[in-house]
Amino acid sequence: MDKIRALVTGVGGAAGVGVVQSLREKNIFTLGVNCFALTAGFKLAHDFAVVPLAREENFIPVLLDLCKAKKINVLIPTVDEELILCARNREQFQRIGVKVALGETETIAKCLDKWIFFQELKRYDLPVAQTWSARGECSVSKLNFPLIAKPRMGRGGRGIRIFHGPEGLGDFLALGGDYILQEYVEGEEFSVDTLADFYGQGLVAVPRKRIEVKGGVCWKGCTVHNEQISVAALEISEKLGLKGPACMQLKVSKAGEIKFFEINPRMGGTTSLTRAAGVDIPYLTVKLLMEGTVDPAELRFRKTYISRYFADVFFTEDELPQDVEGELGLL
């Protein structure tokens, strides 16, 4: 593993930072990339580069050029908007000796689209929060409240609205936009970090209780041994055909019902807690890519708590890769 050189995207976010920290601890070279120059993760990676946004035409060509220039052999995307693009261009990366830490394009698309995700879980009779498409396929008078309106392809809690009754919902839906409506489950919230091998066999599911959440980010939490959640998460992983890491979200209702409502087919923002508990998902993902197997002992975890705080990194002017004042509109 000492010859592994990994390119990690999105090192301005918690998931990317967590991957870099994990791989550095294992003496794996990391090239951290992000679309902004003023990025904390640049200080944590061995090397860094600014790349275009995923929606820009030169995103994949720039990644390919970086992989060739820096002798990269593993690509780990951590940003939702990049996942389908990187998976779709997997063969281009493979031709230059780079393995992509993602599953199949079709599977990723099913996970990112919350409406399709709901339909898939219903098809397999798996536990999922009741969901409706907001595109004229539901009658407001027949809905149960409270409920949540979410962008069908959203992430990070952006654009979410909670409705405690029908008042205002009709006007909101009339504004347009591709939304789903989902039952609001009263109860404890969990995330589950899962890992499957690259043949689709689920290996481990580590539930994390979200004790304190701010802006969609877990600030306090703990890993828990809950067989019911772990079994359900692994079943979802295998039924959907997930490969590599994923992060699922669910609630356990006051009546004890498990209701999954979201899945990210990539590493989660609090994968660091799972790593501290004993299951180093970023490292194991690389190990699976390069060696095909992991030791069962590496899949065991202990109850561990997390309490987050702000940490500061500083750049001198000559350390930044481009004119950051122009980037931030300070000129």
Rank of each mutant, 00 (worst) to 15 (best):
W219K: 11
W219P: 03
S253T: 12
T271S: 14
H225L: 08
D280N: 14
G202L: 07
L250N: 07
I236F: 02
A232N: 12
A205R: 05
A276M: 11
P207V: 00
S272Q: 15
K209C: 08
G278T: 02
L242R: 06
K259H: 13
A205W: 04
A232Y: 01
T271I: 14
G216V: 10
K209A: 12
G269K: 06
P207C: 06
F260T: 00
L234F: 03
F261Q: 05
I263Q: 04
C218L: 07
A255Q: 15
V231F: 09
G221R: 05
G202R: 01
A276E: 14
E227C: 06
M248A: 04
V213A: 08
G256C: 03
G269E: 03
E227I: 13
T271Q: 11
T271N: 13
K259D: 03
I211Y: 01
K209S: 11
C218H: 11
V224N: 07
I236K: 05
K214N: 14
E238R: 13
G268S: 09
P265K: 05
A205S: 11
H225N: 07
K254M: 10
G244H: 07
L240I: 04
A233L: 03
E212Y: 09
R275N: 07
I229S: 12
N264M: 09
S230E: 15
E262F: 03
C222H: 09
V206I: 04
K214D: 15
W219L: 15
E212M: 10
K214L: 15
E227K: 15
P207S: 07
K251P: 00
G241Y: 04
G216C: 11
R275D: 02
S237D: 15
E235I: 00
R208C: 06
C247R: 06
V252L: 13
G244Y: 05
V206G: 01
A233W: 02
A232D: 10
C222K: 14
S230G: 10
T271H: 09
L242T: 03
I211Q: 06
A276R: 15
L273W: 12
G202Q: 04
I229N: 11
T223I: 02
A277C: 05
I229A: 04
V231E: 15
V213L: 13
G244C: 13
G256M: 07
I229P: 13
I263K: 04
Q249T: 00
G244D: 11
I236Q: 12
R266P: 01
S237A: 14
Q228V: 07
V279A: 01
D280S: 04
E257H: 13
M267S: 09
I229R: 14
R275Q: 11
E212C: 12
A246V: 01
H225W: 12
V252P: 08
P245E: 09
G221N: 04
G241D: 05
K251D: 02
F261N: 08
C247V: 14
V224C: 08
V231L: 12
Q249K: 02
V217K: 15
P245T: 12
R275I: 02
S253Q: 06
L250H: 09
R208A: 00
F260V: 00
L273G: 06
G241W: 04
G268H: 08
T274H: 13
R208L: 06
F261E: 06
P265A: 11
W219N: 13
G216Q: 08
C247F: 10
M267R: 05
N226W: 14
P245D: 10
G216D: 02
V204N: 00
V217G: 02
G202M: 03
H225S: 05
A255I: 10
T270K: 12
N264Q: 06
G269C: 03
N226K: 15
L203H: 02
